[in-house]
Amino acid sequence: MASQGTKRSYEQMETDGERQNATEIRASVGKMIDGIGRFYIQMCTELKLSDYEGRLIQNSLTIERMVLSAFDERRNKYLEEHPSAGKDPKKTGGPIYKRVDRKWMRELVLYDKEEIRRIWRQANNGDDATAGLTHMMIWHSNLNDTTYQRTRALVRTGMDPRMCSLMQGSTLPRRSGAAGAAVKGVGTMVMELIRMIKRGINDRNFWRGENGRKTRSAYERMCNILKGKFQTAAQRAMMDQVRESRNPGNAEIEDLIFLARSALILRGSVAHKSCLPACVYGPAVASGYDFEKEGYSLVGIDPFKLLQNSQVYSLIRPNENPAHKSQLVWMACNSAAFEDLRVLSFIRGTKVSPRGKLSTRGVQIASNENMDAMESSTLELRSRYWAIRTRSGGNTNQQRASAGQISVQPAFSVQRNLPFDKPTIMAAFTGNTEGRTSDMRAEIIRMMEGAKPEEMSFQGRGVFELSDERAANPIVPSFDMSNEGSYFFGDNAEEYDN
């Protein structure tokens, strides 16, 4: 993207840094990872977990959730003011799984939030270390993106479920800051804005008074975040219109849905970061690795190297396929839920299948599930090659597409044709070009129609051997075009429920 120079890199967003050079960025990201790792080690000690239990991804998720809940100030305040039966607002906890007599047992633990905050700050040299908290939120978000298709949420806001490739980060909490905003897809931002506008339509006082002023500035800020994701002048001009509207209503909703559809071809720039579970960072720190000293990046080879040398386990339900569970977590670790499966298959070195073909449910185990038949197995999170994460949407291309997802959002900077089903997408653009945004709409449609099938995206960008740390010898991959490109292809993934 041309304006790259004016933006802070995501590592800076990730670490609240002012302008830093590459070495400083690597050190501050490393410091953040160190903090998460030290916190995780301490929690495993508190909970008396064995090494194996500490490497269980379900335990990692519970521990991450506990610290996120302990620092969720708004919710904590709300819980104190609106006490609900049987919930102690000062405590947080969740299921911890232990191996007892050759069987997995679930144990519900409860801790004072104050105590968890103390352990977290102690692991982070006394700081609140917001960057580390956001990092864990993005890992949870990436896992949700890989596990669930947001059909219901899309339909509720009037969008087409086939636009799911635009929904990265749709389950990120509001408090995820600049680093969170960077990884949100165009569809996620559109959905947040539509929800806001709908509230304004239904509630006369939404934009009024002292609160209304705050609401208005939040609305304009979200519009600017979305505008910054678009790469064409016409899309940005249309966002200006939406932002400046005196009284946002149905016309703005129409414009936003139009823009979301246009992003299936004229893709937005959305950041991709490899955020790993805390149970990967903990053992690495415990083994003596100093992330701050060595430096770390979320968008280069580092996460690949770390996963190459990590042992992570997962509980497996009786009829689940461990290899499929591994694929789910591998995609989440690489922030690749909406990437082209052919690119992923090449990088991973084994075939990556669409969601609907995987015999696996989510990673988390519900409290009512029976533990008797639970097994555990090693997650295979290694890769054959590594590639640089991208934040450009890439230019655009036609490809055989599917009944489910009709476009992709690249996660890796790797040369390819970008699949999208042009006739299906263009069919949504018939007729409606009147109104105050008509010239911009016409211009956007013209650009979409001009998108050429034979153009290559990320020209000359390749993948790298894991021994090639400096990215000196790019390998331009070859793809098996007979395979499906979309992950949520004609899909039956479970729906995400809060």
Score class of each variant (00 low, 15 high):
residue 51 D to Q: 14
residue 348 R to I: 09
residue 496 Y to L: 08
residue 115 E to Q: 09
residue 3 S to W: 13
residue 472 A to N: 11
residue 469 E to N: 06
residue 287 S to K: 06
residue 277 P to C: 08
residue 473 N to V: 04
residue 201 I to Q: 05
residue 125 N to C: 15
residue 48 K to D: 09
residue 78 Y to R: 08
residue 255 D to V: 02
residue 438 S to T: 03
residue 356 G to F: 08
residue 280 V to R: 07
residue 474 P to Y: 02
residue 30 G to M: 08
residue 257 I to Y: 03
residue 248 P to M: 04
residue 138 I to K: 10
residue 401 A to S: 13
residue 312 V to H: 02
residue 81 E to N: 12
residue 193 L to W: 07
residue 483 N to A: 01
residue 259 L to N: 08
residue 494 E to R: 10
residue 139 W to H: 12
residue 343 V to S: 13
residue 196 M to S: 13
residue 122 Q to F: 14
residue 60 S to G: 15
residue 30 G to K: 10
residue 66 M to S: 12
residue 314 S to I: 07
residue 288 G to Q: 09
residue 147 T to S: 02
residue 421 D to I: 11
residue 254 E to G: 10
residue 468 D to V: 03
residue 242 V to K: 02
residue 188 T to W: 03
residue 469 E to G: 11
residue 446 R to K: 13
residue 494 E to I: 12
residue 162 R to I: 09
residue 485 G to N: 05
residue 233 A to I: 05
residue 334 N to P: 06
residue 38 R to H: 12
residue 20 Q to K: 00
residue 2 A to H: 00
residue 124 N to I: 08
residue 401 A to N: 15
residue 433 T to Q: 08
residue 345 S to C: 10
residue 307 L to K: 06
residue 86 G to K: 10
residue 168 Q to F: 08
residue 450 G to K: 00
residue 214 K to T: 02
residue 63 I to G: 01
residue 40 Y to V: 07
residue 351 K to I: 01
residue 35 G to Y: 09
residue 16 D to V: 02
residue 213 R to E: 12
residue 87 K to V: 10
residue 352 V to K: 14
residue 472 A to H: 06
residue 365 I to S: 08
residue 450 G to H: 11
residue 360 T to H: 09
residue 176 S to R: 05
residue 247 N to A: 10
residue 224 N to L: 12
residue 179 A to L: 10
residue 142 N to K: 11
residue 230 F to E: 14
residue 56 L to H: 13
residue 258 F to Q: 11
residue 224 N to V: 14
residue 407 S to V: 03
residue 357 K to H: 08
residue 495 E to M: 12
residue 354 P to L: 11
residue 134 T to S: 14
residue 278 A to D: 09
residue 427 A to P: 10
residue 129 A to I: 07
residue 142 N to L: 10
residue 214 K to E: 03
residue 419 P to W: 04
residue 381 L to A: 08
residue 332 A to M: 08
residue 101 D to H: 05
residue 180 G to E: 08
residue 118 R to W: 11
residue 178 A to L: 09
residue 450 G to D: 04
residue 363 V to T: 04
residue 56 L to W: 02
residue 242 V to H: 05
residue 333 C to F: 04
residue 146 T to A: 15
residue 153 A to F: 12
residue 420 F to W: 03
residue 473 N to C: 00
residue 430 T to Q: 01
residue 277 P to Q: 13
residue 230 F to W: 15
residue 333 C to K: 01
residue 411 A to M: 02
residue 483 N to Y: 10
residue 193 L to E: 11
residue 283 P to A: 14
residue 442 A to F: 00
residue 199 R to T: 07
residue 177 G to I: 09
residue 227 K to P: 05
residue 177 G to M: 06
residue 454 E to C: 15
residue 441 R to Q: 09
residue 248 P to S: 13
residue 131 A to E: 10
residue 262 S to M: 08
residue 423 P to Y: 08
residue 476 V to M: 08
residue 158 G to R: 01
residue 306 L to N: 10
residue 176 S to M: 01
residue 440 M to D: 14
residue 321 N to C: 03
residue 258 F to D: 03
residue 376 S to P: 14
residue 209 G to L: 07
residue 104 W to D: 11
residue 450 G to S: 11
residue 316 I to F: 04
residue 220 E to I: 04
residue 426 M to E: 00
residue 3 S to P: 00
residue 228 G to F: 04
residue 379 L to A: 02
residue 220 E to W: 12
residue 145 D to M: 12
residue 134 T to N: 10
residue 340 D to G: 11
residue 276 L to N: 12
residue 82 H to F: 15
residue 392 S to Y: 01
residue 328 L to N: 13
residue 456 M to Q: 14
residue 472 A to M: 02
residue 272 H to K: 04
residue 108 L to A: 07
residue 9 S to N: 15
residue 440 M to I: 07
residue 107 E to T: 08
residue 212 G to A: 12
residue 181 A to N: 04
residue 371 M to G: 05
residue 388 I to H: 08
residue 136 M to Q: 14
residue 427 A to S: 13
residue 198 K to R: 04
residue 174 R to P: 05
residue 429 F to Q: 01
residue 216 R to S: 10
residue 57 I to M: 09
residue 345 S to G: 14
residue 342 R to M: 14
residue 222 M to E: 08
residue 477 P to C: 02
residue 155 V to A: 08
residue 388 I to S: 07
residue 302 D to C: 12
residue 297 S to D: 02
residue 255 D to E: 11
residue 333 C to E: 04
residue 343 V to P: 03
residue 235 Q to C: 15
residue 489 F to W: 02
residue 436 R to P: 07
residue 216 R to I: 05
residue 327 Q to N: 14
residue 143 L to R: 05
residue 163 M to Y: 04
residue 463 V to R: 06
residue 489 F to P: 01
residue 320 E to H: 08
residue 103 K to L: 11
residue 317 R to E: 02
residue 105 M to N: 13
residue 146 T to V: 12
residue 344 L to I: 10
residue 116 I to A: 05
residue 105 M to W: 07
residue 185 G to E: 14
residue 15 T to R: 00
residue 274 S to L: 09
residue 190 V to W: 00
residue 407 S to P: 01
residue 233 A to S: 00
residue 256 L to G: 13
residue 180 G to K: 08
residue 223 C to L: 14
residue 365 I to K: 05
residue 135 H to A: 10
residue 191 M to R: 07
residue 201 I to W: 04
residue 370 N to S: 06
residue 395 N to G: 09
residue 238 M to A: 15
residue 336 A to S: 09
residue 374 M to I: 15
residue 170 S to D: 12
residue 314 S to C: 14
residue 468 D to H: 03
residue 200 G to H: 09
residue 254 E to C: 10
residue 175 R to V: 05
residue 405 Q to A: 11
residue 198 K to L: 11
residue 75 R to S: 00
residue 407 S to I: 03
residue 483 N to L: 14
residue 467 S to P: 01
residue 451 A to L: 15
residue 142 N to S: 13
residue 179 A to N: 06
residue 202 N to W: 09
residue 206 F to R: 05
residue 146 T to S: 15
residue 465 E to L: 00
residue 398 Q to R: 15
residue 157 T to Y: 01
residue 13 M to S: 02
residue 256 L to W: 03
residue 113 K to F: 11
residue 239 M to C: 13
residue 473 N to H: 09
residue 250 N to R: 03
residue 88 D to A: 00
residue 46 E to Q: 09
residue 42 Q to A: 10
residue 133 L to C: 02
residue 181 A to T: 04
residue 356 G to R: 12
residue 219 Y to E: 10
residue 365 I to R: 03
residue 181 A to P: 00
residue 190 V to Y: 06
residue 57 I to Q: 12
residue 456 M to V: 12
residue 353 S to C: 03
residue 60 S to C: 14
residue 52 Y to S: 13
residue 206 F to K: 11
residue 115 E to D: 14
residue 44 C to R: 13
residue 73 E to S: 10
residue 57 I to D: 07
residue 15 T to H: 12
residue 471 A to L: 01
residue 269 S to T: 15
residue 432 N to M: 12
residue 21 N to P: 13
residue 46 E to N: 12
residue 396 T to N: 07
residue 135 H to L: 03
residue 300 G to E: 08
residue 462 G to M: 01
residue 9 S to M: 14
residue 386 W to G: 08
residue 362 G to L: 03
residue 477 P to W: 02
residue 479 F to D: 03
residue 110 L to A: 02
residue 74 R to M: 08
residue 298 L to G: 10
residue 159 M to Y: 04
residue 38 R to T: 08
residue 385 Y to R: 11
residue 47 L to T: 12
residue 433 T to W: 01
residue 457 S to P: 09
residue 176 S to W: 04
residue 334 N to G: 10
residue 125 N to L: 13
residue 319 N to E: 01
residue 469 E to V: 10
residue 475 I to L: 00
residue 212 G to L: 12
residue 395 N to D: 01
residue 194 I to A: 07
residue 217 S to R: 02
residue 380 E to V: 02
residue 3 S to Y: 15
residue 55 R to Y: 11
residue 44 C to G: 12
residue 481 M to Q: 10
residue 423 P to D: 08
residue 3 S to N: 14
residue 201 I to D: 06
residue 35 G to P: 04
residue 182 A to F: 09
residue 476 V to K: 00
residue 19 R to E: 03
residue 88 D to P: 03
residue 430 T to S: 15
residue 88 D to M: 06
residue 3 S to C: 00
residue 392 S to Q: 03
residue 155 V to R: 08
residue 431 G to M: 13
residue 370 N to Y: 06
residue 237 A to M: 13
residue 401 A to C: 01
residue 410 P to M: 05
residue 426 M to F: 02
residue 497 D to E: 08
residue 310 S to W: 02
residue 429 F to P: 04
residue 471 A to S: 00
residue 441 R to E: 05
residue 381 L to V: 03
residue 437 T to Y: 02
residue 251 A to V: 15
residue 64 E to Q: 01
residue 99 R to I: 02
residue 210 E to I: 00
residue 468 D to Y: 00
residue 483 N to K: 14
residue 429 F to A: 01
residue 474 P to W: 03
residue 212 G to M: 14
residue 36 I to D: 08
residue 232 T to P: 09
residue 88 D to Q: 11
residue 104 W to M: 03
residue 264 L to D: 02
residue 175 R to W: 10
residue 228 G to M: 11
residue 221 R to P: 07
residue 410 P to N: 07
residue 477 P to A: 09
residue 403 A to Y: 08
residue 90 K to E: 01
residue 139 W to S: 05
residue 276 L to E: 04
residue 440 M to S: 10
residue 487 Y to H: 13
residue 382 R to E: 09
residue 276 L to R: 06
residue 26 R to E: 07
residue 309 N to G: 14
residue 219 Y to S: 13
residue 373 A to P: 03
residue 490 G to S: 12
residue 19 R to M: 08
residue 149 Q to R: 14
residue 483 N to Q: 08
residue 430 T to C: 07
residue 299 V to S: 07
residue 391 R to Y: 06
residue 86 G to D: 00
residue 137 M to S: 07
residue 15 T to K: 01
residue 18 E to T: 12
residue 493 A to N: 14
residue 228 G to H: 08
residue 288 G to M: 11
residue 92 T to G: 13
residue 324 H to Q: 15
